[in-house]
Design a protein around this nucleic acid. Structure first.
Length: 501
RNA sequence: GGGCCGCUAGCUCAUCGGGUAGAGCAGGGGACUUUUAAUCCCAAGGUGCCGGGUUCGAGCCCCGGGCGGCCUACCA
């Protein structure tokens, strides 16, 4: 087997076409269906339309060719009789996967299929690689994620989920802007990894000769803006956490954070339940959706319950951060928690909650009043000592967001950072970094502020029914693939573009 | 990171007690004037992920590696 013949099996011989520099489309396939699906079988409209897209199916009848063209909105049949189709011979030679533009009368065939009968057509891009199975498409997840450019036009569900993602982002922005929130962009390079508990990615700036972290959260920059007088800000952007990859985790993911001056965490709860139910109505047409074969009602208001009440409800254990640390540690061990020496009462309660209760919740429910020990950026609870005004929303059994009445006291914030540093010294690689400039900002005065972070990928999963995050991320993080191309293939190498070598 | 599983033609999948791989679709050639994954005929297409080992003989058994999936751990 020679190199040439191997390659010939994988890419078809180059066909040459005179490809225009632009092409004027005047209709989408969806619009044509919306307008003309009511036609009688065999009826003709007398109206001409021009569509463009990829040739997905072709049925050659000899003197008639039936094609199916797919654009970004759907599909339409091309009805091409030899008699009326220009350059008919060439039309019969088109390959599945070719991009074409077609102009012709909109008609309905005798068998009742809405079609365009071409009076003109042109190739817009010939495909040089073989078409995936036209019925099964691509099932190999590796290929779907690596070659999303194929997956997107072959797998309808992928296409729909990723388009829904784009709409969700757009709807979220509009909804927040309608409430006078202003979108901002803060740095992705951080010199201190702070604002969340996670391991960062590290990089280096040559000219400054300094190491930098990719941000794990935009939080501290956004609150600096509130100090600066931007009273309602939000950022939708990528954050980076150097942790495991799973069906719910991608190392880079999209976070919405917002800060709302003069509001508290009760206001933020209302905002979250309203935003999410609004998005559900827009995307799903209802707030009663199904996820993972279970029903979920996203209509506001959502249940609110404190962490300790939920633990009591699920285990019968009546816990409090006032309890003796060692007593709590024993209870934690009984529940299967791996207790570490530096865990205080608050951390132990959080661990017990995560072990016994969180996975039992389906939601939506706001879990409120987190221990101070595990909430270094949240303000002390106004009436519950040792707790903070913080909540997470559990929806479909997963954490959707994290929010709080922001800690505004610089002295208290400094102490919390010091506590984090102690944890880091005790071996906690995810402890938050000390940020003295942020303390300085607080010293200028941060008004009462409600803050929120939502994992947008998770939200998209929820609203599109996706059970893996990779289905809502266009290009999920994967190991590098070694792609060979025929032109640079060494003789002993496999001249293959889609396999690993 | 740990455990389990997978990798066969461009795509979707077969095959076997270890005896040298087979079909559909796509691609090539041909037939067909209303098809709907069209149909029919012909020909072609494989370093069975890679590298070792065992064996007279390995896609199949063993070891190592690569890539992926699921579960698990951390987090959103």
């Amino acid at each position: 087997m020679t190199e040439e013949s191997t390659e010939a099996a994988e890419t078809t011989e180059a066909r040459t076409f005179d490809i225009p520099y632009r092409f004027e489309v005047d209709a989408t396939t969806a619009a044509l269906h919306a307008e003309h699906d009511g036609l009688e079988d065999g009826e003709e409209t007398g109206t001409t339309a021009t569509v463009a897209g990829r040739l997905m199916l072709k049925r050659d009848q000899g003197k008639i060719v039936f094609g199916v063209v797919q654009d970004g909105t759907g599909r339409i049949q091309i009805f091409a009789p030899a008699k009326t189709t220009p350059d008919f011979e060439a039309f019969t030679k088109l390959s599945l996967g070719d991009w074409i533009g077609v102009t012709g009368e909109v008609i309905k065939t005798r068998r009742g299929e809405l079609s365009i009968r071409p009076s003109a057509w042109t190739v817009l891009a010939p495909t040089r690689r073989p078409f995936p199975d036209k019925w099964h498409g691509i099932t190999d997840p590796d290929t779907r994620y690596r070659q999303r450019y194929v997956d997107l036009w072959v797998s309808e569900e992928s296409n729909a989920a990723l388009r829904a993602r784009s709409r969700i982002m757009s709807l979220t922005r509009r909804w927040l802007e309608d409430r006078d929130f202003m979108e901002v962009e803060t740095p992705i390079f951080h010199s201190i990894a702070s604002g969340a508990m996670a391991r960062p990615f590290t990089t280096h700036h040559n000219a400054l000769d300094i190491d930098l972290f990719l941000r794990i959260a935009p939080e501290l920059y956004l609150k600096r803006l509130t100090v600066g007088g931007f009273e309602r800000v939000f950022e939708i952007g990528r954050v980076f956490r150097n942790e495991g990859i799973s069906t719910r985790h991608n190392p880079e993911f999209t976070m919405l954070e917002l800060y709302w001056a003069y509001a508290d965490y009760h206001d933020v709860m209302e905002l979250v339940e309203q935003l999410v139910s609004h998005l559900a109505m827009e995307i799903c047409g209802t707030t009663t959706i199904e996820y993972d074969d279970r029903e979920l009602d996203l209509a506001a208001p959502w249940k609110r319950a404190s962490m300790t009440d939920l633990i009591a409800e699920h285990t019968g254990l009546d816990l409090s951060v006032d309890m003796d640390r060692d007593v709590l540690a024993d209870i934690a061990r009984e529940q299967g928690v791996e207790v570490k020496d530096h865990y205080g009462p608050g951390k132990l309660i959080l661990e017990i909650y995560e072990k016994t209760t969180e996975s039992q919740l389906w939601g939506p429910v706001f879990v409120t009043d987190y221990p101070k020990e595990v909430s270094p950026l949240s303000r002390d609870h106004r009436s519950e000592p040792g707790l903070t005004e913080r909540f997470e929303a559990i929806v479909a059994g997963r954490e959707l967001c994290n929010a709080f009445s922001e800690l505004i006291d610089p002295d208290e914030q400094l102490e919390r950072f010091e506590g984090q540093e102690a944890d880091r010294a005790a071996g906690d690689a995810e402890a938050m970094g000390m940020d003295l400039d942020y303390i300085r900002a607080l010293e200028y005065g941060l008004p009462p502020t409600g803050g929120l972070g939502i994992g947008m990928d998770r939200l998209v999963m929820l609203l599109t029914g996706s059970t893996t995050i990779r289905d809502v991320v266009l290009f999920p993080t994967l190991r590098a693939e070694q792609v060979h191309h025929a032109d640079d293939a060494a003789p002993e190498e496999n001249a293959e573009g889609s396999q690993t070598a």
